[in-house]
């Protein structure tokens, strides 16, 4: 037999583009599953309620009477989550590159933007679920503390503040997501995230001590500074604006640039 010569009219392209596109819900389901199907991400996620439980117990037993109201409880209890959940976000994106599973992921879904959107959606769901869990644990802590101490339960968490706490968590996770998309390598991305969490606020307050302009205008730029307003009992219109500008600088613009890069870069 000689080299194959096929009549193009016989071997025409099959109508494969007529298939239904992979629906977004399925991609979100898969990305959500990826959040919990490895040991590292499962432990990170499990650590949120576990650490919260430790904090709840501690505050319930040893906190002052003012600290065991529902509002105070909740605000304190959000801390483990605000630290850990963004790491889940970092892992969910950077892990695809560090473990090189991106090769399979993007071969099955070549529209990379859809994969990133699905990851973001899965993380949003996880964040809101974790926030609800922390609220529930805080409620239990409030009731138990009141019973143990023989004081009245104080339900002092207005809905508006509860929503703001949830928003602060979403912003923190969005930042973790950005770091993952931008750095795409697990270890450096985690270091970058932790450095931002711990080093930037310290530097910022040092600069504020020496430079009055920064002390006055820092929150317009410093995200860690402005997000502290979000979880405060009261927030002003100007502070909302500062949350907006710093989020734009630290999350929206870099995320747009990093996403553009991911859409174009070669997956190896």
């Amino acid at each position: 037999m000689s080299a194959p010569v096929l009549d193009p009219t016989v071997v025409g392209p099959r109508a494969t583009t007529a298939r239904p596109r992979i629906p977004m819900t399925r991609l979100v389901d898969v990305e959500f599953r990826k959040l919990v199907d490895t040991r590292s991400s499962r432990w990170l996620l499990a650590a949120v309620p576990l650490l919260t439980l430790v904090v709840v117990t501690g505050v319930t037993l040893w906190g002052s009477d003012e600290e065991v109201t529902f509002g105070m409880h909740t605000t304190t209890n959000m801390m483990p989550m605000e630290l850990l959940l963004p790491l889940v976000a970092v892992l969910s994106v950077a892990g695809e590159w560090s473990q090189r599973s991106a090769l399979t992921t993007f071969a099955l879904v070549p529209r990379r933007g859809r994969v990133l959107s699905a990851k973001a959606a899965a993380l949003l769901v996880a964040t809101l679920a974790a926030t609800a869990t922390v609220l529930a644990l805080s409620a239990i802590g409030t009731v138990v503390a009141a019973q143990v101490r023989g004081i009245g339960t104080v339900w002092d968490l207005p809905l508006e503040l509860a929503l703001r706490l949830a928003l602060a968590n979403v912003v923190a996770v969005a930042f973790g997501f950005l770091v993952g998309v931008a750095i795409r390598s697990t270890a450096p991305a985690m270091v970058a995230y932790l450095a931002f969490m711990f080093v930037v606020p310290i530097l910022s307050s040092m600069v504020a001590g020496m430079w009055s302009w920064w002390a006055e205008n820092g929150p317009w730029i410093d995200l860690s500074w402005s997000t502290a307003f979000v979880t405060a009992p009261e927030i002003t219109g100007e502070q909302w604006a500062q949350v907006g500008t710093s989020t734009l600088i630290w999350i929206v613009v870099p995320l747009a640039l990093a996403t553009r890069r991911v859409l174009r870069t070669e997956i190896r």
Binding site: T16, R19, L108
Partner: peptide, 8 residues
């Protein structure tokens, strides 16, 4: 442009 490339 394949809608579900894994099937093709």
């Amino acid at each position: 442009d394949l809608p579900n490339p894994g099937l093709d």
